[in-house]
Amino acid sequence: MRALIWKDFMANRVLWIGGLALILLPYLLCALVATISYKGQAHDWWYIFANAPGISCMISFLVVAMVGGVAIAGERPDRSSEFLAYLPPSRAAIITSKAMVGIGVITVICLLNMFALYVIEEVKTKEVLERMKVVYGAICSSAILIFGFAWLYSSFLKNPIYSTGLCIATVLLFWMLFAFVYDTMNWGSNHMVIFTPLATVVGIGAFVGGIFSYLHRVEP
């Protein structure tokens, strides 16, 4: 199992490093812009810099989609999945390793975003902390939703580009559908109360579906 995890981690190391760089990029850019425009004025500098977490979060979702998208389908274009198929590990072991690496990476991404949001918030009053909890829920559930769909598509599509793309389309559709239903039903002001658990459940469902679809496939 250790060798499989090493392989799954190393195979996509470019994505991990690139993704991390992309997630950190908004902070760097915002800091740069703020420094150039508001030299010495600490409050205004902070005002611009505080835009970074939002952008970074959006990029993170994109990276999460890619992490899920390459998880299984990433070994198909170069057909290294076939090399692996003739080695002793069972398909269950292969998928477990992929799941562990994928979940590990998205956990790091989520923690990174949560940590940044915590640091950026200047005054930590009770209400602010309450609000942050909601935001945390939104971030994590969205990440689970996105990863789940990307993983599901990755389990049967031939190319990670297709699985990532299809995942983004599905999640956008999910968001729009949710907003539409939510508005027509008039469910009240705090839509996150419903979105967070729903996205989590759907995401986990898609993830489990992906595992089943992988285990029932005969490759190549």
Binding site: K7, A11, D78, R79, S80, E82, F83, Y86, L87, P88
Partner: peptide, 17 residues
């Protein structure tokens, strides 16, 4: 698979390794 050595026609050994 544990007891079999296998050599295929085309090789898909991890190219990055």
């Amino acid at each position: 698979k544990r007891y079999v050595g296998y050599v295929p026609e085309q090789h898909f050994i991890y190219r990055w390794m």
